[in-house]
Amino acid sequence: MTSETLSPPVRSPFAGLMSGTAGPVLVVVAALLAVWYLAAVMLNTPFQRDIYKRGGLEDVSLVQLMTDTLAQDRPVLPSPHQVAVEIWETTAEKKITSKRSLVYHSSITLSSTLLGFLMGTTLGILLAIGIVHSRVLDKSLMPWVIASQTIPILAIAPMIIVVLNAIGVSGLLPKALISTYLSFFPVTVGMVKGLRSPEIIQLDLMKTYSASASQTLWKLRLPSAAPYLFASMKVGVAASLVGAIVGELPTGAVAGLGARLLAGSYYGQTVQIWSALIVAAILAAGLVSLIGLGERIVLKRMGMAR
């Protein structure tokens, strides 16, 4: 370690570019794309050779083989540009109301994600407030909140949806309930930690003001829990997107990103699966960074920004 720092600095033209995070991240992303292309060529080659054999084509050049493998209709692994083209065609070039528009499907998944996330966050905050204020709840509920996550609840997803359908509740709510279940947990755990984060000396100060429990909650506990809330909301929103997508799988839902995945897997439309997957990833990244943005603004205004 020390010997490295003592050696005279070697000035390479890329030193500035590669010392931060942006440069390395770009390089890694480029490497991943290269691997993707390579894998696409390799995985699609057997089928392409089959086509050539049936077409009676002999010694096809390597370049020809590569371009053909990257342009198959139903490839084993579609190439990045095929996915990009598919996403462009199904978002920008289709009407938003069209059944083939990914914007339409995303909005359906997004709405149940957001509804579930909202319900989960509210439930999580309420549970945390109860747990912090009642010893009975703390000791009896908290272990179950943790145990509830070791249960693969997604397995129940089909049943929740079928059962709720049977009693006449359909559409957004059943999917949102699955999202709620997945997202309340991180919020509860984070908020319990956050509501308990004020130090004894601060709680004592509130006592000398003869503040009631609710005043202490509003003026001390909730504000100091804000950083914890945002951190756990980031985890929660990602979980609720997963919940919404999985919630669309079992019932053979007709719309939503999960339905696109399912339809794609039924009809072997790999490009469709991959584009739905990438759009879901973009959605997740967008939601998480949106909450990150809110976090920065709120914490700055509260004077808590690091």
Partner: peptide, 26 residues
């Protein structure tokens, strides 16, 4: 690599990876 992979790893942890299930089944 550490600087390059860590942000990507963090991002991927937030993604709905479960969506690869149909591809893996194929």
């Amino acid at each position: 690599l550490r600087r390059g992979l860590l942000p990507i790893g963090n991002l991927v942890s937030a993604l709905p990876i479960i969506g690869v299930a149909p591809i893996m089944v194929m």
